[in-house]
Amino acid sequence: MLKDHAKLMYAFAASGEIIGRKKLQKMIYIAKKVTFPFQERFTFHFYGPYSEELTLRVEELCNMGFLDEVKEKKGGYFQYRYTLTDTGKEFLSLNEVDMPSLPGCLTDMNDQSARFLELVSTVLYFDSLPKEEVEEKISTLKSKQRYTSEEIDQAYEYIEQLKEKAKPVN
């Protein structure tokens, strides 16, 4: 059980700080889809792939004092900031996680907007379909986001870049 917690804590350590629950969900989903061994199950939700397991695991990490969650009022909504605590760093140092290329991928994803990561994760969710069908799904399911064909192409390019980055270094 704690192995999965350690993997998640490693993701927070590698990212430094993750701002936003949606962004966190998308980053872990994308990392999982490009080969990293995260175990959380995802279903399609309002903002793309979502994992109730991930939400509960994050809550557990906060309750154990391994993860710091700061809730900020931002306009008409709340935003959450996540960072690993010193206790979390100590726990992580005692539980080795072997994902050497994860930090580079997560740092890169953390620099992207939540909107773009929502698109990338949606493309990955439907990755068994031909590109034209994926575009159709996106225009139907994500009509409010008004993603352009160029943005969808960028999402596909970005996925390839991440897969390249995720390859083990020999």
Rank of each mutant, 00 (worst) to 15 (best):
L2T: 15
L2P: 05
H5M: 06
H5S: 13
A6M: 12
A6Q: 12
Y10N: 01
Y10L: 04
A13L: 09
A13V: 00
G16A: 11
G16C: 10
I18P: 00
I19F: 02
I19Y: 00
I19N: 00
G20A: 15
G20P: 03
K22Y: 08
L24S: 04
Q25D: 01
Q25A: 01
K26M: 07
I28N: 05
Y29I: 02
A31H: 01
A31I: 01
K33F: 00
V34H: 07
T35I: 10
T35R: 13
F38K: 01
R41L: 07
G48V: 06
Y50L: 10
Y50V: 06
E52I: 06
E53P: 02
E53S: 07
L54R: 03
T55Y: 08
V58D: 04
V58Y: 06
E60A: 08
E60D: 11
L61V: 04
C62S: 13
C62G: 06
N63H: 13
M64Y: 10
M64H: 07
F66C: 06
D68T: 04
E69L: 09
K71R: 15
K73L: 13
G75M: 09
G75W: 14
G75K: 07
T83K: 14
T83P: 11
T85L: 13
D86C: 02
E90M: 03
E90N: 07
E90T: 08
L92Q: 11
L94Y: 11
N95G: 05
E96L: 12
E96Q: 13
V97R: 02
V97M: 11
D98I: 12
P100M: 08
P100C: 11
S101D: 00
L102P: 00
G104V: 05
G104R: 14
T107Y: 12
D108I: 06
D108K: 12
N110S: 11
N110Y: 08
Q112S: 03
Q112I: 01
A114T: 07
R115C: 04
R115Q: 08
F116Y: 08
L119K: 00
L119T: 04
S121M: 02
L124Y: 03
Y125W: 12
Y125E: 02
F126W: 15
P130G: 09
K131A: 05
E132W: 03
E133T: 01
V134C: 03
E136H: 07
S139D: 10
T140H: 05
K142W: 08
K142Q: 12
Q145K: 09
Y147G: 00
S149C: 07
D153M: 12
E157Q: 09
E157F: 12
Y158P: 01
E160D: 14
E160Q: 15
Q161F: 04
Q161C: 01
Q161W: 03
K163I: 12
E164I: 13
E164S: 14
A166K: 13
K167H: 09
K167F: 13
V169R: 14
N170F: 13
